[in-house]
């Protein structure tokens, strides 16, 4: 058994480093960009002329539709549509790109709600106090609101990231040679599915535990100003 473990570890971990981790990392970064942009669009009051307001309303409607769509359909189905479905309308994507797009859009939809919730949890008085000293909207956002909202958003965003790391195993269904695919292939060769699947489960657990530790320190850092009164 030990010999099998030692022999297959480099292959499985290698697949993790080559595919699973980049897939999760790149997708999460893109998902965060989507989440922040869509959350801001949903929490900002439109100003200006009637046309601009109408365009903003349409944009919000599109965003709401996107979030509803990606939260209401299974991730596996989304992966199949992007990788196997889109070629029928002339859009051919390699497996890794299809994976990145699907994971980003899916996680972005969930994170958008987490970021929106965090932004609206900051009292209106904080916006007013920042505007009152002459700060511009981007300054208020990046210097006052986001640092406070981050503290609220980190637990749900960490959840989404950890979920995403585990969900990358679904990429095996669109031919990406990530950790789970490799463990399946080894199991098919050595006829030890129990051992192989337990091994890959342990590696996912290790990756996720590292992220949980990161979450702990990030939470501690962003909560440093929450101290007992003196």
């Amino acid at each position: 058994m030990w010999e099998t473990i030692v022999k297959s570890t480099p292959e499985i971990v290698g697949a993790g480093i080559k595919y699973s981790i980049p897939l999760a990392l790149i997708s999460f970064v893109i998902a965060m960009v989507i989440a922040v942009a869509t959350a801001l669009a949903r929490t900002t009051e439109p100003k200006g002329s009637g046309v601009a307001k109408s365009c903003f309303k349409v944009l919000r409607w599109i965003i709401s539709f996107y979030i509803w769509l990606f939260r209401s359909t299974p991730l596996l189905v989304q992966l199949f549509i992007v990788f196997f479905g889109l070629p029928s309308v002339g859009i051919q994507l390699d497996a890794f790109t299809a994976g990145i797009i699907t994971f980003s859009l899916n996680t972005g939809a969930y994170c958008s709600e987490s970021v929106r919730g965090a932004i609206i949890s900051i009292p209106k008085s904080q916006w007013e106090a920042a505007y009152a000293i002459g700060m511009s909207y981007p300054q208020v956002l990046f210097r006052i609101i986001f640092p406070q909202a981050m503290r609220v958003a980190i637990p749900p965003l960490s959840n989404s990231f950890i979920g995403l790391v585990k969900d990358t195993s679904l990429a095996s269904s669109i031919t990406i040679l990530e950790m789970f695919t490799v463990s399946q292939q080894i199991a098919a060769k050595n006829y030890e599915p129990m051992l192989m699947y337990c091994m890959v489960a342990v590696y996912y657990a290790v990756f996720c535990s590292i992220l949980s530790i990161g979450q702990y320190y990030l939470e501690k850092y962003t909560s440093r100003y929450i101290v007992n009164g003196g």
Binding site: A129, A130, A132, I133, G134, Q148, I226
Partner: peptide, 21 residues
Amino acid sequence: KLQIRQLTGMVFQSWNLFPHL
């Protein structure tokens, strides 16, 4: 707006300091 806000310093009833700073 920003220029006028710089000319008028506002102090609120419930102070509204930035808690993270």
